[in-house]
């Protein structure tokens, strides 16, 4: 209910901003309307659990790019209330085209099947998919045993084990608290992870399961696990949750989603899988810095060269 209220609030703000941008004829007001959209989008990211992206959106987009745009507007408008009025016919054509576009796009989007996974299925359902014949299956024996004990499996929409089905996947599933759901359903999947009896799994159960795993199949060693358990034994600690266990285990993979926002996972991604684009972006930013600084630099006489300092 609260989620719905927040969503509609942010959505209304974003749409108001978008239509403000579209309809406003004063370029500075256009930029201010864009601020509404950017802020609302950040709110939506928070709502979707992407805290870090939301914060980056506020810092870089609203606090950096938008300021730059407004700065550009101020520098390029002689008359402060400059207006650019499109022609009537153009407006009519654009309105019709855009409405048609929205209609088509929404219709297509609503009638599409999206990728769904990882989803958690019962052991029985997993068996039906024939995944045990999958070449990966023998690598996953230990995990399978563990999952078997809980009657859960993490597979994607096609019944293929998603990614590396390791504790990371389990923790992810635990965090999203996924449960059995039919393929293609796009509802809210944040329901409790169930144990064999169909009751929500507790942190103690997860901890016990972690203990039961052979050491090579979990990303944390025994000592770390012991200290995690010890840390959770503090007198005024409430009943342990799955997230707390994952947090206390201190394992990078486990921590990812126990943080609640994937921030750590993003950091690991930037240093791991996405290291290359991350570094390439630095080349891009260097080039942009040089290009933009060169272009925006005031004109220098051709004979004088640039900057005596060099």
């Amino acid at each position: 209910m609260l989620e719905a209220i927040l969503f509609y609030g942010f959505a209304a703000m974003a749409l108001a901003g978008a239509f403000g941008v579209l309809l406003s004829r004063n370029i500075v007001r256009t930029a201010v309307w864009l601020l509404a959209t950017l802020g609302a989008a950040a709110g939506l990211y928070f709502l979707l659990g992407a805290m870090f992206v939301g914060a980056i959106q506020l810092i870089v987009y609203a606090g950096g790019t938008l300021v730059l745009i407004i700065f550009g507007v101020m520098l390029t408008s002689k008359n402060p209330h400059m207006r650019f009025a499109p022609r009537r016919a153009e407006v009519a054509v654009a309105a019709v085209v855009c409405l048609a576009l929205v209609g088509l796009l929404v219709w297509v989007l609503l009638h599409s099947t999206w990728y769904v996974g990882p989803i958690v299925q019962t052991r029985a359902q997993w068996a039906q998919t024939g995944v045990n014949e999958h070449p990966w299956a023998h690598d996953l024996q230990a995990v399978t045993q563990f999952l078997d004990a809980n009657h859960v499996a993490i597979v994607d929409a096609k019944g293929v084990p998603c990614g590396p089905v390791t504790l990371a996947g389990l923790a992810r599933a635990a965090w999203y608290e996924l449960t059995v759901m039919p393929q293609g359903d796009q509802g809210d999947r944040r329901q409790p992870l169930h144990d064999a009896d169909g009751k929500p799994m507790s942190g103690d159960q997860l901890l016990a399961e972690l203990h039961a795993l052979p050491p090579q199949d979990r990303a944390i060693d025994d000592a770390a696990l012991e200290s995690a358990i010890a840390a959770l034994e503090s007198p005024d600690a409430p009943a342990r949750t799955v997230q707390q266990v994952a947090y206390a285990c201190g394992d990078a993979d486990l921590l990812t989603d126990a943080d609640g926002d994937g921030t750590r996972n993003i950091g690991l991604g930037f240093l791991g899988v996405y290291l290359l684009p991350f570094e390439v972006i630095s080349v891009l930013l260097l080039a942009v810095l040089i290009g933009a600084a060169y272009l925006a630099r005031p004109r220098v006489p051709a004979s004088g060269g640039t900057g005596g300092g060099r």
């Binding site: 749409l15 978008a18 941008v21 654009a94 929205v102 796009l105």
Partner: peptide, 15 residues
């Protein structure tokens, strides 16, 4: 989708 269409419209209409 609506944001996308509004953006496209903005791009075509603004001088």
């Amino acid at each position: 989708a609506i944001l996308f269409a509004a953006g496209l419209c903005t791009m075509t209409l603004k001088r």
